[in-house]
Every structure is written in structure tokens, then in C-alpha cells.
């Protein structure tokens, strides 16, 4: 059984701007996932906090941390505490909501991001499990409803067309992942309204190299790599 924490640097690290690894550094990482899913800073975002996040987000700098991530900043970027001003300057519409109810994904450090970018709506359910490590529990975008089961990193590849073509394409991606012949941990999510299109999620044991990302990018028109 693979643990939620895999690397010694999940424990010793991250190097970050204070004050909280879960409510600040982890929040930056959740924002960064939002940035990747939206393909950049969203035009409009509603940031919904639950439980401990709802109670202590102001004291922990969670607001500017999430916005930093949405802007694409790293947790140790000195601009992190000024992220709200940066986002306001580029005209992003941001709303914070302190939800009263329990977390919909059953974790006290939960945030849900409802984002709009270029007319497309994207939602992300994530939690910060401690020490800066996060979990992505649900993603809704482009007609897909994805519920990942394992820790990051993860790769999502959109496939359509005949089953034979899809199988061949997946085999090529698996070859790049270096998992040839091994049982690959993957999950297939059909599009809600179009069963011929599907999103394939791969659970990865370690981060992809730049070369691997480039090669996979050339194999599919739509990929999302979350780490």
C-alpha cells in the first residue's frame, strides 16, 4: 500500500513563506492545480472554504495563498503575500465564501474552487492534508466529472474515437510513462453526455520529466498533468 506521503521532502519541506504549511503552502498548491485546470488565471473564481479553512483562512493567509497559486506562483515566491493586489490589478473577480456545513469531501482543510475562464466553467474539490501535501478529490470540467483516488502526481489524457485507436494511443502513452508490461493504474472517465469521449487518469509513482511531458503532449490534443 502506497502512503499518502511518498518523499522525504514531503516531510522536510516545502521551503515556503509562512505561516502555515497546510493553510498557506498547501493552499498555494491547490491554487496551482486550479491554474493548470483553467489553463491560466481564471477570469472569475469563487473560493469556498469548509471547516478549519473556513474558520482560520484569514489568520493563516489562505486567501492570498490560493490566489498566488491561481496566478501560477510557487509557495516560496516572495510575491505570495501580495497576490491579492496582483490579482486585483489584472481585474480578476474573486469571491470568498465561508461555508457553514461539513466538508463535501470529508476533510477539515477543504476548499472548493468554482472558476470561469474564457466562458468555460471548471470546479475543483481539494484538501490540504498537512505539511504542504494536498489531495485532489474531484474535478469537473469540459463535460467530465473526475474523482481521483490516489495522491499526486496524476496525468489525465482525453481520448476519443474507436476503441482500437484508443487502445493504441494508451499503449503509446504507457510506453512513455515507462510502465510497459507492468499493470498500469489508470481510471477511465467517460464524458457525461458523450460516451465516445473519455478522460483517462493515470496514477504516477513519481513526477514526469520535462522530456516525458513533451512526448505525451505530442500524442494527445488534451492532456492535464497535476503535481
Amino acid at each position: 500500500m502506497m502512503g499518502k506521503y511518498r518523499s522525504v521532502f514531503d516531510i522536510i519541506g516545502p521551503v515556503m513563506i509562512g505561516p502555515s504549511s497546510s493553510h498557506t503552502a498547501g493552499a498555494v498548491s491547490i491554487g496551482r492545480i486550479g491554474h493548470i485546470l483553467a489553463g491560466g488565471m481564471p477570469d472569475r473564481v469563487i473560493i469556498r472554504y469548509y471547516e478549519s479553512f473556513a474558520r482560520t483562512h484569514r489568520g493563516h493567509g489562505t486567501d492570498y495563498a490560493i490566489v498566488s497559486g491561481l496566478l501560477g506562483l510557487d509557495p516560496d515566491d516572495p510575491k505570495v503575500p501580495n497576490a491579492m493586489a496582483i490579482a486585483r490589478a489584472v481585474g480578476v473577480d474573486i469571491e470568498f465564501v465561508e461555508e457553514d456545513g461539513d466538508s463535501p469531501i470529508h476533510h477539515p482543510n477543504t476548499v472548493v474552487l468554482d472558476m470561469v475562464r474564457a466562458g468555460e466553467t471548471i470546479s475543483l474539490w481539494a484538501c490540504s492534508i498537512g505539511g504542504g501535501t494536498i489531495e485532489v478529490r474531484r474535478i469537473r470540467l469540459g463535460g467530465y466529472d473526475v474523482r481521483p483516488s490516489g495522491p499526486l502526481p496524476m496525468l489525465f489524457v482525453e481520448e476519443d474515437g474507436r476503441q482500437d485507436d484508443v487502445d493504441a494511443s494508451l499503449a503509446r502513452i504507457q510506453a512513455v510513462l515507462g510502465q510497459e508490461g507492468e499493470p498500469v493504474r489508470k481510471t477511465i472517465y467517460p464524458m457525461v453526455d458523450d460516451e465516445d469521449r473519455r478522460m483517462v487518469g493515470f496514477d504516477l509513482d513519481h513526477p514526469l520529466s520535462a522530456a516525458q511531458r513533451e512526448r505525451i503532449g505530442s500524442l494527445s490534443s488534451r492532456i492535464m498533468y497535476l503535481e
Binding site: 516531510i11 522536510i12 519541506g13 516545502p14 521551503v15 515556503m16 513563506i17 509562512g18 505561516p19 502555515s20 504549511s21 497546510s22 498557506t24 503552502a25 493567509g61 516560496d76 516572495p78 503575500p81 498537512g130 505539511g131 504542504g132
Partner: peptide, 18 residues
């Protein structure tokens, strides 16, 4: 104190316990 002042620290394992 550096952590509370929004300075750079290394979380070990968390920022609160750094």
C-alpha cells in the same frame, strides 16, 4: 517568529512546527 512574520522557512514537518 520568522514564520509568523511571513518570512521564508522550511516546514519540518509543518510550518507551525518548523
Amino acid at each position: 517568529e520568522v514564520n509568523a512574520a511571513m518570512g521564508v522557512i522550511c516546514a519540518t514537518p509543518t510550518a507551525g512546527s518548523s
